[in-house]
Write a protein that binds this DNA or RNA. Structure first.
Lengths: 338, 338
DNA sequence: CCCGCCCTCTACAACGTTGTAACCTCACTC
DNA sequence: GAGTGAGGTTACAACGTTGTAGAGGGCGGG
């Protein structure tokens, strides 16, 4: 591997001049610049990023901590995060927490975080009770998602309450009156579950429809499997219903599967809407109406926040909050006709 | 941030002794070790990984280059790769190539590769014509997938021909005689398409069934959307068929959607089997039979190969090949009853 | 009793880069 | 024509770590 010294020798300049060329320092004579560039090309030189990182304190790496890449929402989030990062010349180290509290902690405090410039953290186990622990992290950090709304770090997420309200209203407008909230968790006061349930309630209130608490169904772990299981259980209880708001698309897809097994037709018997707008919703049978959370906006803003923190390392301003715009995506599962 | 010097000062030893403790050098008196450890804990010291990387030449980072994380196959691959990497104390930088030739090239040669210890490369655009370019990469590298079978680097993939043969045989055994091969590409001589088509032919030959070339349908880009489009087109041609081997699960899911729109029942009218065993196949309607490619074996072997290359940097042995075992997963879409 | 060896620890250099300070050379000003 | 200032370049130190070489002390064997 050639070093900056080899380039300097070949170009007959000092190593600092090579460094200046590499870093686009303006005061380099064009002729010199050219000579250095020629030497770089000739040797196929690439700067040693460990050395650069050591000297400059910046590695150009960002860590993205998500519960689970297998979940399409987070895979698609990782996708847009990587695009946004690349636009800023950053690379992304992805780590999976498995939504486990100990793992989340050991990831954000672990030795690997030493080598990244900043952290995008989609918490699922830590909560606002752990704000002290989060505040102790000195690296630039942006929180994603609804688990920690008022933490000590910048925060980006979608308008959950409004999104859920719109989703629910979407079904109410289509004449549905007994709408199951799948994923709601009346016990838990924090996180997407609580926020989306709040939106569900507001939509009912706005429409003057009373909420039957029997229709609020908890789902632990928002996967296809748990959505399916929860729906199976709910069906067994024999409670009548004609609509379903699932608090993410995976739950919706799992539940749709069970509904159809049970001989119910979607949307005729049950109109369904999900949350997240993952790609799969465009190809399921029926296609799934959902809420597009503005993922790329989330990624772009999160990276902008991180970059701001890079540039103003000790700015002691209050953590910022950004709520992205959402969009109701109407597909077959909630088509109007009854 | 405390450095090794701060720890040394506090523990009243030399920095080298601290380094020795950190690196589990055996000849350190227990009492000294304890004192150093106490200082490390007291200062909450974490080694600077850039400095370590500079000095040792190892960063503990591995790059995983895949076409697209949005594709569940690659998201699930990334999942198992990250698990296997973590077991070896490595972190993973993921990069998306978009299956674009120029991007694949610039990724494997780009400056970011300078900072990783090794590369796991799932090529989709480069081919064996580019073996020279690949051979020029000096970093440890393992190729994944079927695009480059006889390259200059170690290689891990599933038994494609046999897998596809088994999938096709699975349908033939269930009495299907006109089986569409969705994703086959009679023009292309390389890659999964060619191999899986070969397996399809072998299964027919073994069963003494002639292949109708009209049933071999090309799909450009293996997504839900392209699978759906290809099936829509195929249906328009009015060619009778009773089985479908899709060369990956996304194609299968897109096609199933179209088949059902067209009023065909699965598996009654058309038995379907896919490839990859992504999670979604367990919850689609109907659930999708598929080939489990042994993803975690792929990840584990690939990382073992990389580790071998770390340990024997200039071993000029021939590149190794590992073919993982596959498994036919029977689900509803190919259930026997007609 | 002394030599040599092993255990334990240390000082110093080196990895490849960028920041600092300073130098030299011009061109321009007065 | 000397002084000034900016452009262009350089030498050197520093970032935080690990490898090398070796020092000092204790112990066993001859």
């Amino acid at each position: 591997m050639p070093t900056i010294h080899d380039v300097a020798r070949l170009a007959e300049v000092s190593i600092k001049t090579v460094s200046n060329v590499l870093n686009d320092y303006p005061h380099v004579r064009p002729a010199t610049r050219q000579r250095v560039q020629a030497a770089i090309d000739a040797l196929d030189y690439q700067p040693n990023l460990s050395a650069r990182g050591l000297r400059s304190g910046r590695t150009g790496l960002v860590s993205l901590i998500v519960p689970d890449l297998t979940n399409a929402y987070f895979a698609e989030l990782a996708d847009v995060v990587m695009r946004a990062a690349e636009a800023q010349g950053l690379s992304v180290i992805i780590a999976q927490s498995g939504a486990d509290r100990e793992r989340e902690l050991s990831l954000i405090r672990g030795p690997r975080m030493q080598m990244v410039d900043g952290i995008l953290f989609s918490a699922l186990a830590l909560s606002e009770d752990d704000n002290d622990l989060l505040a102790a992290i000195k690296k630039p950090m942006v929180l994603l998602g609804e688990r920690i709304l008022h933490g000590p770090k910048d925060h980006v997420t979608m308008r959950n309450v409004e999104g859920s309200q719109a989703a629910t209203a979407h079904l109410l407008e289509r004449g549905r009156r007994r709408i199951v909230a799948l994923g709601g968790d009346s016990a838990q006061g924090v996180g997407s579950a609580a926020l989306r349930l709040e939106g569900y309630r507001r939509a009912h209130a706005a429409a003057g429809v009373e909420v039957d608490e029997d229709l609020v169904v908890e789902v632990v772990g928002w996967f296809r499997s748990t959505g399916a299981a929860a729906m199976r259980e709910f069906l067994a209880r024999g409670i009548p219903f004609d609509g379903l708001v699932a608090f993410n698309d995976l739950i919706a897809l799992g539940a749709m599967r069970v509904l159809q097994e049970a001989g119910l037709q979607i949307p005729r018997d049950v109109a369904v809407i999900g949350f997240d707008d993952i790609d799969e919703t465009r190809y399921s049978l029926p296609t799934l109406s959902t809420i597009d959370p503005g993922r790329s906006e989330i990624a772009e803003v999160a990276l902008r926040f991180l970059a701001d923190q890079f540039d103003h390392p000790d700015a002691a301003r209050a953590p910022r909050d950004h709520l992205t715009a959402f969009r109701v995506v109407e597909r077959e599962s909630s088509a109007s006709a009854r």
